[in-house]
Nucleic acid binder design. Sequence first.
RNA 1: GGCGCUAUCGUCUAGGGGUUAGGACGUGAGAUUCUCAAUCUUAAAACCCGGGUUCGAUUCCCGGUAGCGCUACCA
Length: 484
Amino acid sequence: MPETISTKPRVRFAPSPTGYLHVGSARTFIFNWLYARHNGGTMVFRLDDTDTERNTDASVQSIIEGLHWLGLDWDENYKQSERLDLHRKSAWAIFDKGLAYRDFTPAHTGDDNQSGAQGAWLFNPGMRELSREESDRRAAAGEPFALRYRVPRGTGRIVSFVDAVYGAQSKAADEIEDFALLRSDGNPTYHLASCYDDADLKITQIIRGQDHLTNTFKHVLIFEGLGATAPQFAHLPLLVAPDGAKLSKRKHGPVVSVTTYRDAGFLPQAFINFLCLLGWSPKNDQDFLKLDEIRSLFTLENVNRANAVVNFSEEAPFDPKAIWLNAEHLRALPVEQFATEIEPFFAKAGFNASKEKIAAVAPLIQERVELLGQAPAAADFFFLPELAPYDVNEMVPKKGDLAMVKTVLAKAREALAEATFEHDALEASLRAAADALGLKAGQMFQPIRVAVCGRKNAPPLFSTLAVLGKEVSLARIAKAEALV
RNA sequence: GGCGCUAUCGUCUAGGGGUUAGGACGUGAGAUUCUCAAUCUUAAAACCCGGGUUCGAUUCCCGGUAGCGCUACCA
């Protein structure tokens, strides 16, 4: 064993499996990962499943699945529920030092929600001062109790720590309540389990949501009781909804779940890029960033302190900037990869699309979709055996009429019958046809485009025709002629 | 209520004692193209309020206000 103590950071992501993977959790994971990988450190995944009432296996699966989708790895795996004995022992060790006491007061119902009544609750009268003998006697008699930390009172003690994001923090111990370490069922609370594990797993930096900033004073006390050096803390500003409230499924729906982004066709790298820009800045005016760039640029010093709004609404469920970033990442993909990325979305949309056909279509739509999920709709006419009914007037070009449409279509069919279905040849043929008719290119192309695509807005005509092939193109033009 | 944190365009942000307060998304206008998209140009758009410090505050300090968080035998 090497004797040198590693100075490499060890960070952890410690979700509670009480729901699907939330975008805020995903961001916390990403920031931890970036910190670890930027500094050559270790990433620990720890399931904080001490709340047996609310934990579900489905949630564990959903979290792991979401993390895998992000494509970011971790090095070590732990489950708090497998370490309960360690937690209990550590609580009693704190008790033995006189830093904790038994509280026999029946559990608070929690429903009354009266924390805002008058003044802060600090401890239950009579319990703190119980003699060791009486405490032991009542416990031995089977009376249930919670184990509480004996927070220093009247000593003028100021609890403090330095947060890597928020700076120096301090709070009078007299303001901190005697929080629980062990519940009356003997199970550890989150605070105890989390701190014990962070100490035991030699976590060097705790990077987590700002909602834990004030809890950290308690944690500092626990590390002290444990006889451990507290790690460095870094709290991240929260992700909030446009109404300023913390994102929640109840209130904001599926937009808070990372699977929603995945299913809509976000690329994980774009999603990561977007999340990183909320509460962190590369400070170089860059917005579009590859994962490698983010990793090399990432520092805790560049993390902001103000909450960031994820700008979504019912009409537009995704933040416009997230969509734009996704479009950018989509365009940056090699076309072959773009093709493989859209494939599952065609299957999901019910198109019987071969790999070859998708590969041919991919370059035509890559620049035209912002989400992978938009691909099938953008390319439907390549796969539909029969075009959906469209308005014939759509074919009428600028300064034209239906008579012009008819002649254009007839001429196009004639020209195309002779043409080789390849981009340049099609262009030459159709432009010549337009000349022959004395029409502008646009006037010639629009009727054809609508005839073969069923709509005005579509990819460039010659490439489209080339992919469609002679047979289909001619058939659709003939059909359009019949409509006029 | 108590304690803690925060405050620059609609949103994400840069900046910082003296600046035309910068960028990005989105929005408007224009250019270009066979339509759309992309691209380019361009416009509108911000320092929460009040004091103090200072020759000078958007920047530093204090107060207010607002928002958020914690205030459980949830995490």
